[in-house]
């Protein structure tokens, strides 16, 4: 299932400001697409409009050939699941209950959870290596563990598309890699906002760069993540090379006190 965003405009009213401007992007079936940009560039807003917690001003979002506004919330929740960085609940649920919520769009309102649901939940917890935690209170888990539970919930939702908004924020390196590895292995259509350029280079098939609400670059990591782009978009000097051992793109930033322009001094 593919995701298409055409000419999307999103504004907030107070203060009146356009957050996303004429943004167009597409994520093909099974593709892992990264959305990059500095803080406040509109990444989250764009994603929130796609997963329907924000209203668009104009433009079109199409999910698997169907326009979003033609789908009920329940229908779209069966097509895309969402992992965000904010997961802070006023009430405490058990881990298993949180993951079971992923089954919500698949159930009728009065339908009880059945063995099939429990199996799906168990499988999802196993995938994120949290099965032994299923009876714990969600609030008793560390941030990284909670994040993996939220990922498990979206796995239990069994959707062909996955939207991720900086899913690796505040996680230890190990779990950053783990979360993205799990998503990558699923092979589903994924649109993911990321902070870390190295992670983006390692995991994304294609990347969009967002700056001041506009998409300014698009392409595979090696074309997009360049020294020029990092200077123009982030205002930081960096060197981008292939890492000698992994063969992957490797971004190294120059701190302000680095000796000279090419950093080799």
């Amino acid at each position: 299932m593919d995701i298409q965003v055409k000419d999307l405009n999103v504004s907030v009213s107070k203060p009146k400001k356009r957050i996303v401007e004429a943004a167009s992007l597409h994520v093909d079936e099974g593709e892992f697409v990264g959305l990059l940009g500095p803080n406040g560039s509109g990444k989250s807003t764009l994603l929130m409009t796609v997963y329907r917690t924000m209203k668009k001003e104009s433009g079109e979002i199409v999910l698997g050939g169907e326009r979003l506004e033609d789908l009920t919330l329940k229908e779209s929740a069966r097509m895309m699941s969402v992992v965000t960085q904010h997961n802070y609940y006023n009430f405490d649920f058990k881990v298993e209950e949180v993951v079971m919520m992923g089954r919500t769009p698949h159930k009728k309102t009065m339908e009880m959870d059945d063995d099939n649901d429990r199996l799906i939940v168990e499988e999802a917890l196993r995938k994120v290596n949290m099965l032994e935690m299923k009876d714990r209170d969600f609030s008793s888990l560390s941030g990284g563990e909670q994040q993996r539970i939220i990922l498990a919930r979206s796995l239990a939702q069994q959707t062909p598309c996955l939207i991720l908004d900086e899913p690796t924020n505040h996680l230890d390196v190990k779990y950053q890699l783990e979360v993205l590895d799990i998503v990558k292995q699923l092979g589903c259509t994924a649109l993911c906002a990321l902070h870390d350029l190295n992670l983006a280079a390692q995991y994304c098939d294609r990347i969009y760069i967002l700056l001041n609400g506009k998409i300014i670059r698009e392409g595979p990591p090696e074309e997009v993540i360049t020294e020029d782009m990092i200077r123009d978009v982030y205002g930081v000097r960096a060197s981008v090379d292939r890492h000698p051992k992994t063969g992957m793109l490797n971004v190294v930033y120059y701190p302000g006190h680095a000796k000279n322009d090419d950093g080799k001094g």
């Binding site: 917690t53 929740a77 699941s81 997961n87 919520m101 919500t104 769009p105 939702q157």
Partner: peptide
Amino acid sequence: STATTLGVD
């Protein structure tokens, strides 16, 4: 936000 993404209107 989460309720919306789980299809609850």
